[in-house]
Write a protein that binds this DNA or RNA. Structure first.
Length: 258
DNA sequence: ATGTCGGCCTTTGGCCGA
């Protein structure tokens, strides 16, 4: 079972990249973030022709998530249960059931815009996500949460100079909230496979960041305990960042046994 | 060197978000 997540920074700009990537990597389930369109404008036809069913949670201009899957699935939630306020109206969450698992795709608020209220929205999203994970653990479900978390969990997870001190991606409260989710008993798949050292999933378009490997690890896949026992590999696909007109994020691919 | 993208309105440039 191959799971993946990719912030594509506009699906209409990246349709060909995604189609080629599906053909090359053959994921069973791919979560997308920042599709930046409403559901009717999602270019589903090409993906469906390639054997991938699509579920889309879109909005105009910003945000937007989707899932493409070549295994049968059912959409369970299109918004994060328990979340209120402005951020709750944004297209940032999709939850499906597939192959006996609950699979969640998220686009967590960046938290650097909108002042302190914007940052509080990020924390509110993380609190509600923690509650959702707790509920799934209590129900003894196998689950994974994949997506753009907009959190660089430790100092190994961003290049020096890639972020300013006080950035919402590394604020202590941000990291504490991330840890509190992991510490429920989940496994950060990339770090389970690559425990130390530089490991990035995003390079800013500005200042030749990719050429200088001035990146961030902000796209994560967290696995519930029983799924973690099935973890085989977890890799960022850096190759995609070197393609023509790439997204600023690369896909993260997780392989589970059976 | 406030540097690059994407979307959209205020629309052929400026703004926001990232």
């Amino acid at each position: 079972m191959r799971l993946a997540t990719w912030n594509v920074n506009s699906i209409r700009q990246r349709e060909r990249h995604v189609a080629a990537w599906l053909a090359r990597v053959q994921p069973d389930v791919l979560f997308l973030q920042e599709i930046k369109c409403q559901e009717p404008d999602f270019p589903r036809a090409g993906f469906e022709a390639a054997g991938y069913s699509c579920a889309v949670v879109g909005q105009k201009s910003y945000n937007g998530v989707a899932v493409l899957a070549r295994v049968p699935f059912e959409v369970i939630h299109t918004a994060l249960p328990g979340l209120d306020g402005d951020v709750a109206a944004q297209a940032r969450y999709i939850e499906i059931e597939a192959a006996g698992m609950v699979l969640i795709g998220i686009y967590l608020p960046n938290g650097n815009s909108g002042g302190e209220a914007g940052y509080q929205g990020k924390l509110a999203f993380m609190a509600a996500l923690k509650a959702r994970a707790e509920a799934l653990l209590a129900a003894d479900r196998d689950f994974a949460i994949l997506g753009d978390w907009n959190v660089a969990p430790t100092d190994d997870d961003y290049a020096k100079g890639a972020l300013s001190a006080g950035d919402a991606l590394i604020r202590p409260q941000t990291r504490a909230a991330y840890r509190s989710i992991v510490w429920l008993g989940l496994t950060d798949a990339l770090r389970a496979v690559h425990p130390t050292g530089k490991l990035y999933t995003f390079w800013d378009y500005q200042s030749a960041c990719f050429q200088r490997d001035c990146g961030l690890r902000i796209d994560h896949a967290l696995l519930s305990p029983q799924l973690a026992e099935r973890l085989l590999t977890a890799e960022p696909d850096r190759r995609e960042r070197g393609e023509e007109q790439p997204s600023d994020h690369v896909p993260v691919v997780i392989d589970l046994a059976a």
